[in-house]
Simulated scan of single mutants.
Amino acid sequence: MSSAEGPGRAGAAALGWLARRLRRLAGLASITPDPPGPPSLPAPRAARFADRLEDRLLTLFLLVGGLGVAVPGLGRGLDRGGAVDPTLAVLVLAAGTAVVPPSRLADFPWRRALVGLVGSSVLLPLLADGLAHLASGPNGEGILALGVASSEVASIGLVGLADGDGALAAILVAGSTAVTVALASPVLGWLSGGHHVEPGGLLVTLLLVVALPFAAGIVLRRASRAAPAPTEGIRLLGLLALLLLLLEVASQVRLGLAALRGIALLVAFLAGSLLLAWLLARGCPGDRGLGLLLPLTMRDFAVAAGIATAAFGPRASGLLGAYGLLALLLGGLLARGTGRRLLSGPARPPVSGGPGMPGSRR
């Protein structure tokens, strides 16, 4: 190295150090005139615990579902004690607190949401009816209940994780819940031939266990916007209720050839639901497309379990825990990028020879 090179490098290093110091001082000067904001408060303990549960929800589903199948006595004892309805009511109350209305009603895609809601409410019960004829006994009744159940509440959170339109997902879940409360009883009675379902009793159950808790959750969220601690506690209770309900439902699974056939039919129902949701959501921008795709694909296994138990008895809910696990797996895949790829379609290669394209001779 020459003698001229040494001073040159030293000067450049000194100038770099001085520039960094000046940028730091400029940054401090731009910050100091601003008034100090309120100190950031740590998240409530319930919120932190609920976040941990949500991060591990799929693993917990596998563990609790496996426990319910391996040791069915506890879950069946809870069923005999009538624990399904109050557990579902707590879960639906927590779901209501997750509903966030759209910020601007004028820009909301009401027509698209209405078409998706009507399409899924009409076609999914018909799909469930066709698949139920391929099953036998309680498994077929559980699939029927799945066809008239509302959209999965967890789809709202999955849409949010995927940076989709959470307001659209929330409106679809709320509308689907209203349709289920109003029409599940007569539709289920019609699909089952009216032999097993008592429409009056099922309607009262849906009103007390689904409609009223859901409305109460929406009201509670609006009332506690300034102090979110109560809704965070309810969110934690809702997650615990979800796991408890899964234990109760999984305990009804009877392993055997009929169960394997029923799981295959559940996979077919999920595939049909995804195809229908894709047809209804295609052509929508990415964020709104996801807000349609996930709620229209996923049915709420907890609501389906409540309907099946009220209409046919606890054994009819045996396969619905497996459906909940499959739906969460599919929803996670859709939220992690598969949904956007489905809606956008395959990338088209550039056409050689077009104007302004490489390879054009014009």
Rank of each mutant, 00 (worst) to 15 (best):
L63H: 08
T32A: 15
L265M: 04
A182P: 01
L245M: 14
G81A: 14
V99I: 15
G157H: 01
S30H: 14
A178Q: 07
L114H: 05
A132Y: 00
E232N: 08
A302Q: 09
V153L: 11
V249A: 13
A259L: 07
A223H: 11
G356V: 08
S273E: 01
L280N: 04
I31G: 06
V219E: 11
T309F: 01
P42F: 04
V148L: 04
F49G: 03
Y323W: 04
A308S: 04
L53M: 11
A89N: 01
E54R: 15
I263Q: 03
G200M: 02
D163P: 04
A113D: 03
V64R: 04
G217K: 07
A94K: 06
G283L: 05
L191N: 05
L206Y: 01
P44T: 10
I143E: 02
R288S: 15
P38R: 13
R340H: 15
G324P: 01
L247N: 09
V173I: 14
A149W: 00
L325A: 13
V100W: 00
L105G: 06
L328M: 07
G200K: 00
P295G: 08
R112Q: 10
A169T: 05
L266P: 01
P230G: 08
A184G: 08
L333Y: 09
I31A: 14
A281V: 09
P86L: 04
V99W: 02
F269W: 00
S352K: 06
